[in-house]
Measured scan of single mutants.
Amino acid sequence: PVYLSVKADNSMFIGNDPVTDETMITALNALTEGKKDTTIFFRADKTVDYETLMKVMDTLHQAGYLKIGLVG
């Protein structure tokens, strides 16, 4: 499974590897070998604001990742 996490300080990680807004999709493409039907499990600290969550989800959708599971 692929886990994308947003921490309380808005830092992002794919698994244990830090990513930025600019590198997130490139890292996901490498990890999933470009398979856009891969489910991305998205988790965020409860203090992360809604705007940040939606920005990340919008970026995922624009890149073609449509299977996003929200996890606690």
Rank of each mutant, 00 (worst) to 15 (best):
P1T: 10
P1S: 09
P1L: 08
V2R: 02
V2K: 02
V2Q: 03
V2H: 02
V2P: 03
Y3Q: 05
Y3P: 01
Y3A: 03
L4F: 08
L4G: 01
S5T: 15
V6D: 00
A8M: 06
A8K: 08
D9G: 09
D9K: 08
N10W: 05
N10F: 10
S11E: 08
S11L: 10
M12L: 11
M12D: 00
F13A: 05
F13E: 05
I14N: 01
I14D: 00
G15S: 04
G15R: 03
N16C: 15
N16G: 09
N16R: 10
N16K: 09
P18S: 09
P18F: 09
P18I: 09
P18D: 03
P18R: 12
V19A: 02
T20S: 08
T20D: 09
T20G: 04
T20P: 03
D21S: 14
D21A: 15
D21V: 15
D21G: 12
E22S: 10
T23K: 05
M24G: 00
M24Q: 00
I25G: 02
T26F: 09
T26V: 12
T26E: 14
A27E: 08
L28Y: 00
L28H: 00
N29V: 08
N29Y: 08
N29I: 10
A30V: 10
A30C: 10
A30L: 11
L31I: 11
L31G: 02
L31S: 05
T32N: 03
T32R: 02
T32K: 02
E33L: 11
G34R: 05
G34C: 07
K35Q: 09
K35R: 13
K36R: 11
K36C: 04
K36H: 07
K36F: 07
D37N: 11
D37R: 05
T38G: 04
T39H: 13
I40F: 01
I40R: 00
F41M: 12
F41G: 02
F42T: 03
F42L: 15
F42V: 15
R43H: 15
A44Y: 15
D45H: 07
K46W: 10
K46G: 09
T47Q: 12
T47Y: 12
T47S: 14
T47A: 13
V48K: 02
V48W: 03
D49I: 08
D49Y: 06
Y50K: 13
Y50M: 13
E51D: 10
T52G: 04
T52L: 13
T52M: 11
T52W: 14
L53K: 06
M54I: 12
K55T: 06
K55V: 05
V56A: 04
V56L: 13
V56G: 01
V56W: 07
V56T: 05
V56S: 02
M57V: 11
M57H: 04
M57A: 05
D58T: 12
D58I: 11
D58A: 14
D58R: 12
T59F: 09
T59Y: 09
L60N: 00
L60Q: 00
H61L: 12
Q62C: 07
Q62L: 12
Y65F: 09
Y65Q: 00
L66C: 12
L66S: 10
L66K: 10
L66G: 06
K67Y: 10
I68Q: 03
I68R: 02
G69A: 15
V71R: 06
V71G: 07
G72Y: 08
G72R: 11
G72P: 13
